[in-house]
């Protein structure tokens, strides 16, 4: 898992790095969950997310927006992601457990995933991007 929070005055700016594109998506999902919730979550329930989009950035933005939605509505904290990226589409299986205020409470509410500065780079066999969560 490789993500780190960088300084941003108003919101949460995450820098994500991974040797693979699928890893980048999974780490971005982890970054979102770690922002919203404390503690760990057992992979006892799963949801499947399908996203289509013109660019890889569209796929990543769509995935994170959908993950935020699923987490909030299904009341689930996700901890594991299986990512399959195809031409103009991505399929994600996200696994986790129901939100428990005692073990997961105390995180930061994320309102949405911003497009600001979202660009996926590939340098020296590593993918990276910055993602801003509105909180």
């Amino acid at each position: 898992m490789s993500f780190e929070e960088r300084d941003h005055t108003a919101d949460i700016l995450m820098h994500i790095r991974s040797p693979s594109l699928c890893g980048l998506f999974a780490d971005a999902g982890q970054a979102l969950m770690k922002t919203m919730y404390r503690g760990t979550a057992k992979p006892v329930e799963e949801v499947t997310i399908q996203i289509t989009g013109e660019t890889t950035e569209h796929l990543l933005h769509g995935f994170l927006s959908e993950l935020l939605f699923e987490s909030e509505v299904a009341n689930l904290v996700f901890s594991e992601f299986t990512i399959i990226i195809g031409e103009g589409e991505v399929s994600i299986t996200a696994r986790g457990e129901p939100f428990n205020p005692a073990t997961h409470g105390g995180g930061t509410e994320v309102k949405g995933i911003s497009w600001y500065g979202l660009s996926i780079l590939k340098e020296n066999n590593e993918y990276s991007c910055d993602i801003l969560f509105d909180v």
Partner: peptide, 26 residues
């Protein structure tokens, strides 16, 4: 929050449809 997310997607396409050049996708 979801209204913003949903319409951002539509408006991102509209920006191109109406040939509007912007320095920030947001």
């Amino acid at each position: 929050h979801q209204v913003c997310t949903d319409h951002l997607q539509i408006l991102e396409q509209a920006t191109r449809k109406y040939h509007i050049n912007l320095p920030d996708k947001q």
